[in-house]
């Protein structure tokens, strides 16, 4: 199975986990890779584009006895934290393209690129028109910039919204309430 994707251009790593195939692709060559996956491998259906933010990944640390110099900190239950540290991620953001082959021989594959804050990835809107809103959503909520997208505007948040709400450094709640008396 893995060998079949060896000829896809730009693939830097192939992973098999939980019965799913992940192709890690060089961001600069994502359009090339996606075109090859569509034309040579028949992935004619873009199911989803999912961005994830890994800021603070694994920083919870390993669970255990939580002590300070003055003794045990009662506000930190000894069981918070992880059973073991997760595998470190290469960069802050991942963008996963979930592809589907709609044919008699159906298959799914995940093409994944890794980006740091401020880095952009070429748009795949020319490969699958369905990428239009998926990329706008990733830009709106996660702040991933897609080069060459003809209309990379916010889609779910207001046009004048500041920040990208699904980033890990964006607080949950506490956003200013509009039209309140305070300002």
């Amino acid at each position: 199975m893995t060998a079949t994707y060896a000829a896809v251009p730009g693939v830097v790593e192939t992973r098999e986990a939980l019965a799913e195939t992940t192709l890690v692709v060089d961001p600069a060559r994502i359009v090339e890779a996606c075109t090859a996956l569509r034309d040579a491998h028949g992935f004619n259906f873009l199911s989803d584009i999912a961005a994830a933010d890994y800021l603070g990944w694994g920083e919870d640390g390993v669970a255990g006895y939580v002590g300070t110099a003055d003794g045990r900190d009662l506000n930190l239950p000894s069981t918070t934290g992880l059973a073991r540290l997760p595998e470190p991620k290469p960069k802050r953001f991942s963008v996963s393209y979930h592809l589907l082959r709609v044919s008699d021989d159906p298959a799914r594959v995940r093409a994944q690129v890794w980006l740091d804050d401020g880095e952009s990835v070429p748009s795949v809107i020319g490969v699958w028109p369905a990428a239009d809103w998926f990329e706008r959503e990733a830009w709106d909520l996660m702040g991933i910039r897609f080069d060459g997208h003809p209309n990379l505007a916010r889609i779910l948040m207001d046009d004048d919204w500041e920040g990208h709400p699904l980033r890990k450094d964006y607080p949950l709640g506490g956003e200013p309430v509009r039209f309140s008396d305070e300002d």
Binding site: A51, A52, Y54, W57, P86
Partner: peptide
Amino acid sequence: YLVSDGGARPWRVK
């Protein structure tokens, strides 16, 4: 699309 870091809460749900 679900990402877990091994903890008690989902890391990312899409």
